[in-house]
Write a protein that binds this DNA or RNA. Structure first.
Lengths: 231, 231
DNA sequence: GCAAAAGTGTTGAAGGTACACCCATGT
DNA sequence: ACATGGGTGTACCTTCAACACTTTTGC
C-alpha cells in the first residue's frame, strides 16, 4: 500500500475525536483532556489524535480513548466528520468524531504525553473547548438525546444491576425534562427487556429498590424480528 | 496553512462520494458513473473524488456532483465516513460519503475526464459497484428510509407541484411497503404543510388530481416551535 | 361504456398522559 | 416519628389501522 502516482496532491490531515459520556448518578459527564501544546495550550478538549495510515477509524478512536482512560467496555459509534477549512489554525485537519458511552465504575482518566490533565466534567457546566470541540459536543449531545429514545443505549451508562429510579433519572437528564414515574415504569416493564434480579439495594435511607438488568439477548432476538425500542 | 513539524506522519488520502437519488415517477434511482481508470476500470461507482486541501467537505461533494450532473437544486447531507484500511486496493483512502436528493427535471448526467459514462439506475436493479460503494449505497438507502418518516425530505424528489398520488407512490417505494390511501391523505393533509394550488393535472386518462405544493416556510415556522413531522 | 386513478368517513383497538396514595427503610 | 424515594391502577383522550364505494376524465 504505497502512495502511487495517482495521489500526488497535498492531503488534509485526518484525526479522530471522541465525545465520551459517563453518568455520575445525578449528572451527565464528559471526559475532557487539557492540552499541553499549542495551539490552545492549556485549553480543555475532547480526547483524540491522528489516524495512523493503516489504522481503521474506529480502532483509532478506541486507541485514543485507551490512552486517556482505562476503558473496560465502551459503546462506540461514529458521530459526524468535521472538516471546515479553518477548524485547526495551523493546518487543514479533518476530524472523524466518535460518540461513546461508558459505565461509571473505575474509568479513572489519566493524562498522557500530549495532555496536562484529564477529567470528567458535568455537561451542564463546561469550560470553553479548543478547536470546534464545543460544536462537536453539541452534536454528540443531540445524538444522545435523539437516540436514547429509539435504541437501548441508556443501559450503557448504568452498572449491570440498576434500579428503575436510576434509569428514570438518567433518562430525565438526557432528555432534559421530567418523566412521569408510573408511566415510565409501566412502559419499560412492558417492553419485557428488563430481568428482575430479585435483589434489592441496601443501605439506603428509604425503601430499597428492586434491581434489574437489561436483557441484551432478548433485545437482539426481538430486534431481529423487527421490534422497535421506542420509549 | 503549511504543514509544520507537528504532522510529519504519512496521511490517509481523503475523498468524498455522493449517493444521489432521483425519482423517475415510478422507481427510485441512483446516479452512477462508469470508471475509466484502474482500479475497477469499467465498473460502475458513486460519483466522487479527492478533497482539495483547502476545500470544505460539503463543497467538495457539491463540486463532484457538478462535474457529473447539471445540478440545480440538491438536498445534501453528510452520511457516514468509510475508512476500512482495505477499501481501496492501492492506497489508504478514507471517504466521507454524502447523501443527496434531486428533483427529476433536467439533470442529465454527463461523463467527465475520469468517467467513461454516467447514468441513472433503478435501485432495485443495480450492477456490482466498485470499492465499497455497494455498502455505502446500502447505508444511504437505510438513511433515506429512516429519515423520510421524520423529516420532509420526500418533497426534494418531486417537482414543486405534485399530486397526493405521486407522493404516496414515492413513499411506498422508499419504505418498501404499501400505504393505505385514505390514511395517507388524511395524515398528510392534517399536518397543514401542503398548499392546495387549486390546479389540476390535465391530459391524464382518469379523473385529474389536485396539485399541491410543500409549504417550507410553514414547516420551518412549525419546527422552530418544536413540531415533529412524523409520518 | 369502460378503464383508471381520484377522492372521501367511520369504527374499533392501542397507546399515551394525567394523576394520589401507601410502603419500607435509615436516622 | 419523620424524611426519603419505592411502588402501584384507572380514566380519558388521541392516534393508528382497517375497510368500499362514487367521481371524473380519456379513449
Amino acid at each position: 500500500m504505497v502512495s502511487g502516482h495517482t495521489y500526488r496532491y497535498p492531503r488534509p490531515a485526518l484525526t479522530v475525536d471522541v465525545a465520551l459520556f459517563g453518568w455520575a448518578g445525578d449528572a451527565l459527564q464528559v471526559l475532557l483532556v487539557q492540552r499541553d501544546k499549542a495551539p490552545f495550550d492549556g485549553s480543555w478538549a475532547l480526547p483524540g489524535g491522528f489516524v495512523q495510515v493503516d489504522e481503521d477509524l474506529e480502532a483509532a478512536a478506541l486507541r485514543e480513548l485507551n490512552e486517556k482512560t482505562h476503558v473496560h467496555d465502551v459503546f462506540l459509534e461514529q458521530l459526524y466528520t468535521f472538516g471546515a477549512p479553518g477548524r485547526d489554525p495551523r493546518d487543514r485537519v479533518v476530524s472523524v468524531a466518535y460518540f461513546a458511552l461508558v459505565r461509571p465504575a473505575s474509568h479513572p482518566p489519566r493524562a498522557d504525553a500530549y495532555t496536562r490533565d484529564a477529567g470528567w466534567f458535568d455537561v451542564a457546566d463546561l469550560p470553553e473547548l479548543a478547536f470546534d470541540h464545543g460544536e462537536i459536543l453539541r452534536v454528540a449531545r443531540d445524538r444522545l438525546r435523539g437516540k436514547v429514545r429509539w435504541a437501548p443505549i441508556g443501559f450503557e451508562l448504568l452498572p449491570p444491576a440498576f434500579t428503575l429510579g436510576q434509569l428514570q433519572r438518567l433518562y430525565e437528564a438526557i432528555l432534559g425534562r421530567p418523566l412521569d414515574k408510573r408511566n415510565f415504569r409501566k412502559k419499560l416493564l412492558s417492553l419485557g427487556l428488563l430481568t428482575d434480579l430479585h435483589r434489592h439495594e441496601s443501605g439506603v435511607p428509604h425503601r430499597p429498590s428492586r434491581l434489574y438488568a437489561f436483557d441484551r439477548d432478548r433485545y437482539d432476538a426481538m430486534s431481529a424480528d423487527g421490534l422497535v425500542f421506542e420509549l
